[in-house]
Nucleic acid binder design. Structure first.
Length: 506
RNA sequence: GCCCCCAUCGUCUAGAGGCCUAGGAUGUCAGCCUUUCAAGCUGAAGACAGGGGUUCGAACCCCCUUGGGGGCACCA
């Protein structure tokens, strides 16, 4: 497919942390830029000084980098169309807002917050439509002069047409028509001289030569306003593509800014850095996110980003909202973990294990037991966080003393278990090499010699040595635990069983 | 309340009028494998919201209803 290089942007506002829904928007923009051989631009929309959060910018940059969504222009990399912080472009917005006023396409409004809220109050009381009544739009030059003389502050509002309608095109949804009468004379420049989103995004997209706007569907209703702005400036609007919102997994309501709620009542985090901290792989998250609102071919679920880039098509993005498929991410992350090479998995695991086990990462990296265990636990993990609880007993000074109930297999008596354990101890003590293969050979031979079922012999060992009923595969586990602790714990289990009279019925 | 958008298995999706007795995935359930738990393999149940049109023919086009979502700030 031949497409002209697109210039697209991701334009987060540093008022909060990088949200998983924002990551999907960023990803789609990035995929489209890479697909067309164009540019992915990162622009920081920091015009809300009240809600500014000092850590938000770094959180976004770190999150994008973690996901591997590299930007061609923006913070820390620069570019020919900067600055890429709106707070550094204020004079540009002011200049063009003034120009609009000169052209008669916008006007100064002197209403105070108190006046506006009183107006809304009255509208509600009178069951009228709530919205700015344009009282300042019709002010005479003398009235304006009077207000300015009073030293009243003002905002600049767009003078939208009072009748007629506007029809614009959205790639994903087709033509959409709004009646101008439904539109507000929106504020373009605030009284502090800072622009609102409406003004800033139109001006920046124009001067940054943005060709396609891909953003959340919550912006759809402000497009008519933007359309009028483009027309007032006599600028060509970019192509609009409004992405479907991501809903809660229940399908009820937009995913919140704080936590995702599952039908079972559990909550799932929403920030990109939380997914990283929870042990999700960036590649899995990217793969997963690409499948919300878009599909590679309708068949393939696991694919790398190169494949996604090659196939990404803006025209095949779904228009309907999608519930966040949380269980699918779990599965997919597990798939990615299973595909990792031992060494790569080990490296990915180190920070998590180090924290969970309280052991220095360097020490862990050099620990042969960990290397032994990696292949054994890989398919038991859904996230990188799952490894620790699976193997922590290896580094524990001691393990819980098992109960007789746990030690004695089904359809086996206490006496039989004791006999089996005794035989195991002797056999393991006499083992030449303490490694997985040697242990397995010896124990399987013992199963045959004693004429018992494999489980009758293996399960007591598992419980005795690890204190758990569920563990990684037995032989590699024993190899990792080591001979001395293994024998010791087996002997201790024998003591637990002690006088079998108490457990005779088992 | 007003405006706009949306509507395929529980969920993510394929489907651009005949390839559809609707495909894939996840989740669920069952069987196999098996030293536990997983993983893996096999199988099962599971959807075109409803009603009208248009057409020889509709999941796909139009209308209505219903349901869901989004927006109505000197926030983005």
């Amino acid at each position: 497919m031949i497409s002209t290089p697109a210039r697209v942007r991701f334009a987060p506002s540093p008022t909060g942390f990088f949200h998983i829904g924002g990551a999907r928007t960023a990803l789609f923009n990035w995929l489209y830029a890479r697909h067309t051989g164009g540019q992915f631009i990162l622009r920081i929309e920091d015009t809300d000084r009240k809600r500014f959060h000092p850590d938000a910018l770094q959180d976004h940059l770190a999150g994008l980098r973690w996901l591997g969504l590299d930007w061609d222009e923006g913070p820390e990399v620069g570019g020919d169309y900067g600055p890429y912080f709106q707070s550094q472009r204020l004079s540009l917005y002011q200049e063009w807002a003034d120009w609009l006023v000169e052209q008669g396409a916008a006007y100064r409004c002197y209403c105070t917050a108190a006046e506006l809220s009183e107006m809304r109050e009255q509208q509600r009381a009178g069951k009228q439509k709530v919205g700015y009544d344009r009282r300042c739009r019709w002010l005479s030059p003398a009235e304006r002069a009077a207000r300015e003389a009073e030293g009243r502050s003002w905002v600049i509002r767009l003078a939208v047409p009072l009748d007629g309608e506007v029809t614009f095109h959205d790639v994903i949804r087709g033509d959409i028509t709004y009646a101008n009468a439904e539109l507000q004379d929106a504020v373009l420049l605030k009284s502090d001289g800072w622009p609102t989103y409406h003004l800033a995004n139109v001006i920046d997209d124009h001067f940054m030569k943005i060709t396609h706007i891909m953003r959340g569907d919550e912006w759809l209703s402000s497009v008519p306003l933007h359309w009028h702005l483009y027309r007032a400036f006599d600028w060509e609007p970019p192509v609009w593509a409004h992405l479907p919102v991501i809903l809660n997994p229940s399908g009820k309501g937009k995913v919140s800014k704080r936590a995702i709620r599952t039908p079972s009542g559990a909550t799932i985090p929403v920030f990109v850095h939380e997914y990283q901290q929870m042990g999700y792989l960036a590649e899995a998250v990217v793969n997963f996110l690409s499948g919300i609102g878009w599909a590679l071919d309708g068949e393939t679920e696991i694919y790398d980003r190169k494949t996604a880039i090659a196939a990404f098509d803006i025209h095949h993005i779904q228009a309907s909202p999608a519930a966040f498929p949380a269980e699918k991410l779990e599965w997919m992350n597990g798939m990615y973990i299973r595909q990792m090479a031992d060494e790569a998995l080990l490296q990915a695991l180190l920070p998590f294990l180090s924290q969970q086990l309280g052991i220095d990462a360097g020490t862990l990296a050099a620990d042969k037991r960990l290397h032994l265990l990696i292949p054994a636990i890989r398919e038991r993990m859904k996230t990188l966080k799952d490894a620790g609880p699976l193997i922590d007993f290896i580094w524990a000074d001691d393990v819980p003393i098992p109960t007789a109930t746990d030690l004695i297999p089904r359809k086996t008596t206490c006496e039989q278990t004791c006999v089996i354990l005794q035989a195991i101890i002797e056999r393991l003590q006499g083992l030449q090499e303490w490694d997985e293969a040697g242990i397995e050979t010896a124990l399987r031979a013992l199963v045959a010699e004693l004429g018992v079922k494999a489980g009758q012999l293996f399960n007591p060992i598992r419980v005795a040595v690890t204190g758990r009923r569920v563990t990684p595969p037995l032989f590699v586990t024993l190899a990792a635990v080591g001979r001395t602790p293994t024998i010791h714990r087996l002997q201790r289990a024998l003591q637990v069983l002690g006088d079998c009279g108490e457990h005779a019925d088992h």
